[in-house]
């Protein structure tokens, strides 16, 4: 059991990295990766929301949708859940932990529509994980997103000060970098 969970965790971080091999959540990957500070904030926020969302969506799926044979409502109800959850979390954090809100708060609304969160919730169901496995998978995916964003931000901070052809500056070189990173992450396949 323990070994299985570790394997799910490692797979989620490296082999099936949510950004670099499943290509989910590309918008923040390009958008929020220009500075390491904001990349760390965004990565932590996504990890946090992923964990909460996968617990709630798994419960809704297995305690409400499956007994009522309404599995086809999965996507729409998950979107509803994630949006409401993020809003709720934002309010709670703002009230109870202003310091945390200062560093994470601005990113929370961005996550409302992040397809990585929805994607991982759906994958949890598709793979038939139980609650613990789903949570571990979500945590791994969140960490994977965090690492990918951090690596990208580190590279882009260096790219900013390096000499580039005018046409490659900004988004073009970011896309090339993302492609190379994804290729590099392919090397992890076969690890587990």
């Amino acid at each position: 059991m323990g070994a299985e969970l570790i394997s799910i965790f490692i797979v989620a971080i490296f082999i099936e990295n949510v950004v670099l091999s499943q290509v989910l959540g590309l918008c923040p990957f390009i958008g929020v990766s220009s500075k390491i500070d904001s990349a760390v904030g965004m990565g932590l926020a996504v990890t946090f929301v992923l964990l909460m969302a996968s617990v709630v969506t798994w419960s809704v799926q297995n305690f409400i949708l499956v007994p009522l044979q309404l599995e086809y409502l999965q996507t729409i109800s998950f979107i509803l859940i994630i949006a409401a959850l993020v809003q709720f979390v934002e309010m709670v954090v703002k009230k109870t932990a202003p310091a945390l809100y200062q560093s994470l708060g601005v990113f929370l609304p961005l996550i409302t529509t992040n397809c990585a969160v929805l994607g991982i919730s759906l994958i949890n169901i598709k793979k038939g994980y139980n609650l613990i496995e789903a949570t571990v998978n979500a945590g791994g995916a969140g960490l994977g997103f965090f690492f990918a964003l951090l690596i990208m931000a580190g590279i882009r901070e260096r790219l900013d000060i390096s000499e580039l052809p005018e046409t490659m500056k900004g988004a073009p070189i970011a896309f090339v970098t993302a492609g190379l990173l994804a290729t590099a992450f392919m090397g992890f396949s076969g690890l587990v």
């Binding site: 409400i64 009522l68 729409i76 509803l80």
Partner: peptide
């Protein structure tokens, strides 16, 4: 039931 579940949610 679909309408009810989504509505209640």
């Amino acid at each position: 039931s679909a309408v009810l579940v989504l509505g209640i949610l």
